[in-house]
């Protein structure tokens, strides 16, 4: 146990982001859906009001002693803003429905939604403002945007998007320009409402999805341009996708942290990111469903052993959203383990 006075969550996170060791490894549990469980509401009811999300996030933070508040509702809220369909599920995140860009030509007629006058986005901004009023500077509030480069998966579907990317370069560029305007406005609105940082969700840039060469001519350029226009710190998340082969490129986009996959070795990631990017990750959210409390503790210890030394590490899941099916006792075991074993200097069994 160190002799540092206990830090606030924000101080802890800022210290680790500066690649120094705080009092303890920060814990981010991205529990966007679990607030509904806490309030006894369906997922659809839960997301219908900003106040529900505020209450849910505060309950979850107190319960699991996490080091951040997430003002994120669900990814498909962005297509909802563009007039797309959202499909609710009883036991999973609301999903984007049928793509609203049905033909490539539709791209020419798109216009950027007005953030302040779009009810679903206003709801998120209201929740962010209310959370900021309560949390103040004690803990970071993480807002989320889907990157301009990854949004088309929900706008037009993955298959069509790949075809656009490879076969229609001019329409692809046109879509990127429109999406960039939306993404920057949406990120900055969340920062103005009180978000401390923005999670730039960019799974399509992962090497699981496109090769590095393609990334350099597409997602990388888009990220570099977009992130430079966001008026606050960003963390780039690849939502379970691999990113080890492009770590040095990600650094060049100006982001401060990277959300990593459980399919990549945390030690190798730590070595690659050393002093350049903070790692957020990488507990396996799908497997977590059936972990015992002992197993959860073992997984936390393993992650701490590989990545905690020297700071630059935030313990989290690998996807940026913990599945609805993960039981409370596992989440509690993860939290207990990081509070027990995550104190600096790290001493593991």
């Amino acid at each position: 146990m160190n002799n540092l006075p206990e830090m606030t969550s924000l101080q802890r996170v800022l210290k680790t982001l500066s690649h120094k060791e705080p009092d303890r490894v920060p814990l981010f549990l991205f529990l966007s859906l679990h607030g509904a469980k806490e309030l006894g509401l369906s997922i659809k009811e839960y997301f219908s009001r900003a106040e529900h999300v505020v209450e849910g996030q505060l309950i979850l933070r107190e319960k699991y002693r996490t080091d951040c508040i997430c003002s994120f509702f669900y990814a498909a809220i962005e297509v909802e803003a563009w007039g797309g369909e959202v499909v609710y599920s009883a036991d999973g995140p609301p999903n984007s429905g049928a793509p609203f860009i049905r033909h490539f030509e539709d791209i020419k007629n798109l216009s950027v939604p007005d953030i302040q006058n779009t009810p679903c986005l206003s709801k998120v901004l209201t929740a962010t403002r209310q959370l900021k009023e309560i949390v103040k500077d004690e803990a970071p509030i993480i807002g989320v945007v889907v990157s301009p480069f990854s949004l088309p998966v929900m706008q037009m579907g993955f298959p069509q998007y790949f075809t656009l990317m490879y076969d229609e370069p001019s329409l692809f560029e046109h879509l990127m320009a429109i999406n960039e305007e939306f993404c920057v406005a949406w990120a900055n609105a969340q920062l103005e409402a009180g978000a401390t940082a923005i999670c730039y969700f960019d799974p399509v840039s992962s090497t699981t999805v496109i090769p590095r060469q393609k990334y350099l001519s597409t997602g990388f350029k888009v990220a570099k341009k977009t992130i430079s226009r966001i008026n606050g710190p960003t963390a780039t998340h690849f939502a379970s996708g691999n990113c080890l082969p492009i770590i040095n490129d990600i650094v060049q986009t100006g982001t401060a942290a990277v959300g990593t996959s459980s399919l990549e070795d945390l030690h190798a990631l730590k070595t690659a990111c050393n002093q350049k990017l903070t790692i957020i990750g990488n507990l396996n959210g799908v497997e977590m469903r059936r972990w015992s409390t002992d197993e959860a503790e073992r997984k936390v210890i393993e992650a701490l052993g590989k990545a905690a030394s020297g700071g630059g590490f935030i313990l989290s899941d690998n996807h940026g959203e913990i599945p609805w099916q993960v039981p409370d006792h596992v989440l509690m075991a993860i939290s207990d383990a990081v509070h027990k074993w995550g104190n600096y200097p790290i001493e593991l069994p």
């Binding site: 790949f162 990317m165 490879y166 090497t207 699981t208 999805v209 496109i210 090769p211 691999n242 082969p245």
Partner: peptide
Amino acid sequence: HADASLSQVYM
């Protein structure tokens, strides 16, 4: 084995 990407598999 992470030596190719989904876009290449699809195309």
